[in-house]
Simulated assay, not measured.
Amino acid sequence: MPLRAAHPSRGFTLIEVMVVLVIMGLVATSLTLGLDSLRGRDVDQALRRLRLVMEATADRASVRGRPIALELLPDGYRFSALDADDNWRPLNDPPVFTEKTLPTGLAWRGLRLDGQGQADSTRLQFGTQPPEYELRLATPSGEALLTGKANGEVVLQLPGRSS
C-alpha cells in the first residue's frame, strides 16, 4: 500500500502565485508599450498621408483650374470644391478626397498663410497657383510642421527629425 502524506497539498504555494503575478505584470507592460508605439506610428502615418494628400490637392486644383479647399475640422479634415455657382461643396472622391478623422494624439495647432488675403484660419485654399503656408499640428512627441511651397511641394517636419 502506497504511503500517503498526512496533509495532502491543496492549492498553490505563495511562490507560485507570485511568479504568476510577475508574469502577468510583464505581459501587461509589454502590451501597453506595444500599443503606445502603434499609436505613435498612427500619428506619423496620418501626417505623411496628409502631406501627400495636400500635394495631390495642389496638383488637382491647378489642373482643374477650379479652387479646392482643405477645411480643418475640430477632429479631422475634409476637402471642398468650388462649384459652378461659386459655392463650396464637400468633395467626396474616394480614397484620397474623403473626410478623415485625426488619430488620437494629433490636433491642429495653427495655420499661417503667406501672401494670401485669407482671414479664415480653418480653410486652406488651393488654386491655379499653390499657396505658401505653414500648418502646425500637436503630436504626443511635440509639434509637427507641414510647410507648403510655391511649387506645390509639402515638406513635413516631425518632432525631433525632418522627412
Rank of each mutant, 00 (worst) to 15 (best):
M1R: 13
M1D: 09
M1L: 07
M1T: 07
P2N: 05
R4Y: 08
R4T: 10
A6V: 10
P8F: 07
S9M: 09
R10Q: 12
G11I: 07
G11Q: 12
G11W: 10
L14W: 02
I15D: 04
E16V: 14
V17K: 08
V17Y: 06
V19Y: 03
V19G: 06
V20W: 07
L21F: 12
L21W: 12
M24S: 14
V27C: 09
V27I: 15
V27M: 15
A28Y: 04
A28S: 11
S30K: 00
S30I: 10
S30T: 15
L31C: 12
L31Y: 04
T32H: 05
G34D: 05
L35F: 05
S37G: 01
R39H: 04
R39C: 00
G40E: 02
D44L: 00
D44C: 00
D44K: 00
A46V: 03
L47W: 05
R48H: 02
R49M: 06
L50S: 07
R51I: 00
V53P: 01
V53E: 13
M54A: 08
M54S: 06
E55R: 08
E55G: 12
A56K: 15
D59V: 05
D59C: 00
R60P: 05
R60D: 10
A61W: 08
S62R: 15
V63D: 02
V63L: 13
G65F: 04
P67M: 13
P67F: 06
I68T: 08
A69R: 12
A69T: 10
L70R: 03
L73Q: 10
L73Y: 00
D75T: 04
G76D: 03
S80F: 04
L82M: 15
L82H: 11
D83H: 14
D83M: 11
D83S: 08
A84I: 09
A84M: 12
A84D: 15
A84F: 08
A84T: 11
D85I: 02
D85Q: 15
D85C: 03
W88I: 11
P94C: 13
P95M: 07
P95D: 05
F97P: 07
F97V: 06
F97A: 06
T98V: 15
E99P: 03
E99A: 15
T101Y: 02
L102S: 01
L102G: 00
L102F: 08
P103I: 02
G105E: 05
L106S: 01
L106N: 01
A107S: 10
W108M: 01
R109I: 06
R109G: 05
G110R: 07
L111Y: 11
L113W: 00
Q116P: 03
Q116E: 12
Q116W: 10
G117V: 08
G117C: 08
S121V: 14
R123F: 04
R123V: 05
G127C: 13
P130W: 12
E132G: 13
E132D: 06
E132H: 06
Y133M: 09
E134S: 14
E134N: 09
R136S: 10
R136L: 14
A138Y: 02
P140L: 01
P140A: 02
S141F: 01
G142N: 01
E143Q: 14
L145W: 14
L145K: 11
L145R: 15
L146N: 03
T147Q: 14
G148T: 13
K149N: 13
K149M: 15
A150D: 10
N151P: 00
G152N: 07
E153L: 14
V154A: 06
L156G: 15
L156Q: 12
L156C: 15
L158S: 07
G160H: 07
S163N: 13
